[in-house]
């Protein structure tokens, strides 16, 4: 039936359609940038593509005059280390809290409303408290990420555990499983794939908190650099950094999805 909802793009045209918005944005950028540069050759707002190349060569390939380091790679390494620590700790915390609260109603009665409230506090609003408790160093940056995403992951896992059909739990018990074994053999295998999803979904927030933390007090990092050079409108550095962050985030998302498929073939991880 020839209706719009039945029309499927071929592989090639699907690829074309996917590329189209990118191409469109690219050309729109180049056109506007050219127009601005024509009016003012020193315009910093929308630099030409060649300026990006020069800026990145300077940031990624030329040792910095002051410290002799390759700033781009140092920024990337610092940010990724913070992000990985923050997300890793959050995932473990979220899993442990989520599974225990989901599986043990007695604990849930006591702690669930607390975790729910915690997950609703905007972390940026309590920054001064975080500073005073955790200082201004690496720890506070990781804590900001953990505070921002761990409660969300925990609540998601808890919800997933609650969804496990009661029959499964009863069945396991008739086969002689105690609480520990039920958690280990029934609850955990069903919760773990969801953990991958939860981490994927909270990665965006994690980046947000990372950049915010680096903007507030830091000596390196992707967010630090962006906020530093923003001081003199160096869009030739900022835009490649933004692109790089997007690429990293995309790669992490894909990577996690692949990991989920590999590790938990029994559960189709959502696309």
């Amino acid at each position: 039936m020839k209706r719009l909802i039945n029309l499927q793009p071929s592989r090639l045209s699907a690829m074309m359609l996917a590329l189209l918005p990118f191409v469109l944005v690219f050309f729109a950028y180049v056109a506007t940038s050219n127009a601005r540069l024509e009016a003012n050759p020193n315009d910093k707002l929308l630099p030409a593509m060649t300026s990006f190349g020069e800026a990145m060569e300077r940031m990624a390939l030329t040792p910095s005059k002051r410290s002799g380091e390759l700033l781009f790679w140092r920024d990337s390494a610092s940010s990724l280390r913070r992000l990985a620590t923050g997300v890793g700790v959050s995932a473990v915390l979220g899993l442990v809290i989520g599974v225990t609260l989901g599986a043990l109603p007695l604990l849930a009665a006591g702690l669930s409303p607390f975790v729910a409230s915690l997950s609703l506090i905007p972390p940026m609003a309590i920054l001064p408290i975080l500073f005073i408790v955790f200082g201004l160093g690496e720890l506070s940056k990781v804590v900001l990420i953990v505070f921002g995403i761990a409660p969300v992951i925990a609540r998601d896992i808890q919800g997933r555990v609650r969804e496990i059909p009661r029959q499964l739990i009863v069945k396991a018990q008739t086969l002689g499983a105690n609480t520990w074994v039920v958690i280990l053999r029934v609850v955990l295998p069903l919760a773990l794939p969801r953990l991958i999803d939860a981490v994927r979904l909270t990665l965006g927030s994690a980046w947000l908190f990372l950049i915010a933390a680096e903007a507030i007090a830091a000596t390196d990092g992707l967010g630090y650099r962006i906020f530093l050079v923003r001081r003199y409108l160096a869009m030739d550095v900022i835009l490649p950094y933004v692109l790089w962050i997007t690429l990293l985030a995309y790669a992490m998302d894909r990577g996690l999805r692949l990991l989920g498929r590999r590790l938990f073939p029994w559960q189709a991880v959502s696309a």
């Binding site: 920054l127 001064p128 500073f131 005073i132 200082g135 201004l136 160093g137 903007a215 507030i216 007090a217 830091a218 000596t219 630090y224 906020f227 530093l228």
Partner: peptide
Amino acid sequence: TVVNTSDADIVSAAATDD
């Protein structure tokens, strides 16, 4: 060592020990 610190948060930053 210069640590870039946002002016909006510098007062609370100053309250920390480090």
